[in-house]
């Protein structure tokens, strides 16, 4: 037992690692802010294209969505970070992560927005057009607000997934939370910094996970 506490919950080592981990957590938060922003807008744009009447717009959007949902973000990230230099393009880790996440997250967000738009009855669009709104206005003021409200739980759980996913940035040596913790582990020969990082992730995500569970239950009861 003592052995166990020493290996995973070593207070001294945790105290030592705290400044490094907090710095890492700050990078993680910044990274989250950027990639969630990019993903939401990329996804929204893609979803509108994928919901359009023109097959010329629709098919490439679907292809994009399915391709980038099929490829694990980790391989995308490595391909961008380690592959592009071979053609003379060198990107810093932060930018590589942003590009990889933009491609992956847009696809996932687009799927969510699209299913929300699809679920809005046709009559809503017709009613909006009948009151003289242009298609774009109808989309913006009538369809999208309803669609977003309907898929709010899915959006939230995708945000949780993205925050967790930022941990893969450690693979390209971006000094976010997991990278910092793993550094501290290697230096101290002790896993306590990893456990501490887990604690920080929990601090951030546990409340959201609770809210999602509440959401699911609330929705299912109202059905």
């Amino acid at each position: 037992m003592e052995n166990f506490i020493d290996a995973f919950f070593n207070i001294d080592i945790m105290r030592q690692a705290t400044p490094l981990l907090l710095k890492g957590a700050w990078v993680t938060l910044q990274l989250c802010a950027v990639v969630i922003f990019l993903g939401l807008f990329g996804g929204l744009g893609l979803a509108l294209l994928a919901s359009s009447k023109s097959a010329l717009l629709r098919l490439p959007s679907f292809l994009f969505i399915d391709i980038f949902r099929a490829i694990p973000p980790l391989i995308l990230l490595i391909l961008i970070y380690a592959g592009l230099p071979f053609v003379g393009v060198r990107v810093p880790p932060f930018v590589a992560v942003c590009i990889a996440f933009l491609l992956n997250n847009s696809a996932y967000f687009a799927e969510i927005f699209r299913s929300g738009i699809k679920a809005i009855p046709k009559g809503q669009m017709e009613a909006a057009r009948a009151t003289g709104l242009s298609p774009a206005q109808a989309q913006a003021w009538v369809i999208l607000p309803q669609a977003v409200r309907n898929v709010l739980p899915d959006l939230l759980s995708n945000v949780v997934e993205i925050v967790k996913l930022t941990s893969i940035a450690s693979v390209v040596s971006l000094s976010e939370l997991l990278y910092s913790a793993n550094m501290a582990r290697a230096v101290t020969y002790n896993s306590s910094p990893l456990v501490m990082a887990a604690g920080l992730y929990l601090l951030l995500l546990w409340p959201l996970v609770r809210v999602i569970s509440r959401f699911q239950r609330g929705l299912s009861i109202s059905h």
Binding site: K164, N190, L194, V195, A198, Y201, L205, L208, V209
Partner: peptide
């Protein structure tokens, strides 16, 4: 269920992979 949904799997894997050997 809460823990497994809130923690990044990569973090869990590293804890298990690097931590467990130190307790044998």
């Amino acid at each position: 269920a809460d823990l497994m949904r809130a923690l990044p799997p990569l973090v869990l894997m590293l804890i298990l992979f690097f931590g467990l050997p130190s307790i044998g």
